[in-house]
Amino acid sequence: MRIGATTTYRELLDSKPLRAKYPLIAEVTEHIGDLQVRNAGTIGGGLAHADPAADMPPVMLVLDATFVLQSKGGKRSVPARKFFKGPFTTVLKPGELLVEIRLPGPPKGAGMAYASFEQAASGYALAGAAALVAVAKGVIARAELAFTGVAETPFLAPATKPLIGTKGDPDAIGRVAEAAMAGVEANDDIHAGREYRLHLARVAARRALTEALARAT
């Protein structure tokens, strides 16, 4: 599926094909900003802005989206997983625009979920986790997990492998959630200290993985 960069959040919410194929995108979009922001804001604008606590980037990471970037000189494609470089910083060069988001078909029967804890003033995530879990023959065949709000950029958890081939019991999920924060240099600000943020991220990871697994068929 291809989404034009200037598609508004409202248009995402109204799209039936999107809801059918990537229900997580609609689910997350409902939590972005407020009604006015969703009416005017666009998915491409939000992703290119690269707020380190935005809700959509981790969704793009677990879905393994590809971003099409265009400048006068031509087009190039960059995986979402290589797009975010720092707070408000991406691989976009001066004169280059994000024009399209390409989404590969999700694995058959994959369940997806997002869990986040919002900062009361801005609504941005203190910590949020997106998860995708696909099940085949009764065991987990694929698991993806990504975070936002925790560190300088959204990031994909490198180690979900321990879940593969298991039924995804709570202990295994808990261990993956725990491992995902190993070595992460978490943000520390007036809204949440480092330790609490890491804790929230683990809770979000566990909740997102558990829910994604429950949704997988």
Binding site: Q119, A120, A121, S122, I190, H191
Partner: peptide
Amino acid sequence: LLTGTLMDYAV
């Protein structure tokens, strides 16, 4: 003042 906007001061 670190809470100088409505993004950080939670009305």
